[in-house]
Design a protein around this nucleic acid. Structure first.
Lengths: 147, 147
DNA sequence: CTAAGACCCGTACTATGGTACGGAGTCAAG
DNA sequence: CTTGACTCCGTACCATAGTACGGGTCTTAG
């Protein structure tokens, strides 16, 4: 089964049909072949593509950045060196995100663990346990957004 | 030095002055005391708070979600049990994000590593190496967004 | 004392990431 | 061969997350 119409792709990927058209306009979803009627016919792999876009978004990439990730794999005419350089840059971004998330995770775990689970919040040691950790311990002041 | 005005806080936290007012309106930044003139006077910790908001955003939390994270620590009148439950839920969200990022990281690393660094993209094994991994190996079909 | 610069506020504008609408053509089951 | 569901397209609308504007007040260095 290698020809889905918009409705099926949308359903399988868990997005709205309009979203598919939107992604197509934005250059994230390649224009699929059409049948004579004008109906789009998507290949199977489109499902994975859409899901990838969604996941990347959930971890903080804008659609523009997602497109950059995707074009790493298909942009012809770019030298391999260049693609490699950009991929390595992206890996750095991703590692930074992971590091930040781990700090948030630690703070939240501490919070959930310290709390005894009874009594009003004002008595709960949660407040103090969170402070300090939640601010991500400063550390990296300044050199963000050097993308 | 425990009384910053908007300008200094903005500068130190790396955001626009307008953004501070915006966060205040949205309930992310607590209203600071004012001097008689009406000027805001922020405590030192506001810098960390703003930076936390920014980092949380970068890893995919909306301002609404960031507020939820923050109110975990200050909302009085909520039972500790409830706060704990919500914190545990957030930890789950965070772990999912980390897992997704790690998949993206693996795909990108593989990509950067496989590529020899010379020649046009069409000859580069990058394209194939990326496929399969980039789709985040499906796996978790369906039960997302059950927040 | 005064003028540049910071701050106040409300309001308007912008970009991003979709969603919804509605009229027209298409498909497929009965 | 019709009818209801699906698709097409352009355009309009929406929420989120800011950013800019502009007239007025406050502060502070000279």
């Amino acid at each position: 089964m290698d020809n889905m119409k918009t409705g099926e792709l949308a359903r399988r990927a868990g997005v709205n049909v309009e979203t598919l058209r939107f992604y197509e306009r934005k250059g994230l979803l390649p224009e699929p072949p059409r049948r004579e009627s004008g109906y789009r016919e998507y290949p199977e792999e489109s499902v994975r593509l859409i899901r990838f876009i969604k996941r990347a978004q959930e971890v903080g990439f804008s659609l523009g950045e997602v497109r950059e990730l995707l074009t790493l794999r298909v942009e012809p005419g770019t030298s391999c060196t260049e693609v490699r350089r950009r991929a390595e840059q992206k890996v750095e971004d991703v590692r930074q995100k992971i590091a930040d998330l781990k700090k948030i995770e630690r703070a939240l775990t501490k919070l959930a663990g310290t709390c005894t689970g009874r009594g009003p919040v004002s008595d709960c040691p949660i407040l103090e346990s969170l402070d300090g950790e939640l601010a991500l311990s400063e550390g990296s002041t300044g050199r963000r957004k050097a993308t």
